[in-house]
């Protein structure tokens, strides 16, 4: 199985006016990498999940995510938005954004990787490192090492 995140799925200088734009930009990277087959269908699934309950979390985190038939393998795209993007968290905009794409009915081992990412997001050191990292490859490498 391929890695859940690679350097080309990292955008350390994400500029987006709102969460839809942020999700779309990150989703385009997933399409380019061949991990998402239909961007409109995928974004519709993301929006549907987002409408149930905003995915912004306290501490500057946004995690748009969904399980979608348009996803071919479990994938992460990481965007760092220095200006912040509102994901509906009570304490303001998010600067650390993970787009989490899970295929419909993905098997447990893949899902465990996504689960461990979710757990890392609670940890302060993990977020600090993501805020200070300089290079997409380094960021991808760091995330992989943390979640596998």
């Amino acid at each position: 199985m391929s890695e859940v995140i690679t350097a080309d799925l990292v955008d350390l200088d994400l500029k987006a006016a709102d969460r839809r734009s942020a999700s779309r930009q990150l989703a385009e990277r997933l399409v380019a990498a061949g991990r998402v087959t239909d961007i409109e269908g995928f974004l519709a699934d993301i929006a549907k999940r987002e409408s149930q309950m905003p995915t912004g979390l306290e501490g500057g985190i946004g995690i748009p995510h969904c399980r979608s038939a348009h996803v071919s393998e479990p994938s992460l795209a990481f965007g760092r938005a220095t200006d912040g993007v509102d994901f509906g968290a009570p304490d303001g905009p998010a600067d650390i954004i993970f787009l989490i794409a899970a295929p419909e009915g993905g098997d447990a081992s893949h899902m465990k990787i996504l689960a461990s990412l979710a757990r890392r997001l609670i940890r302060a050191q993990f977020k600090e490192r993501l805020r200070s990292v300089q290079d997409p490859a380094e960021a991808a490498e760091f995330i992989r090492s943390e979640v596998s």
């Binding site: 995690i63 989490i100 899902m111 996504l114 689960a115 757990r119 609670i122």
Partner: peptide, 14 residues
């Protein structure tokens, strides 16, 4: 959580 891939595990960790 509804999707079962993120908040479930974040809440557990917290």
């Amino acid at each position: 959580c509804p999707t079962g891939i993120a908040h479930t595990y974040m809440a557990a960790e917290a």
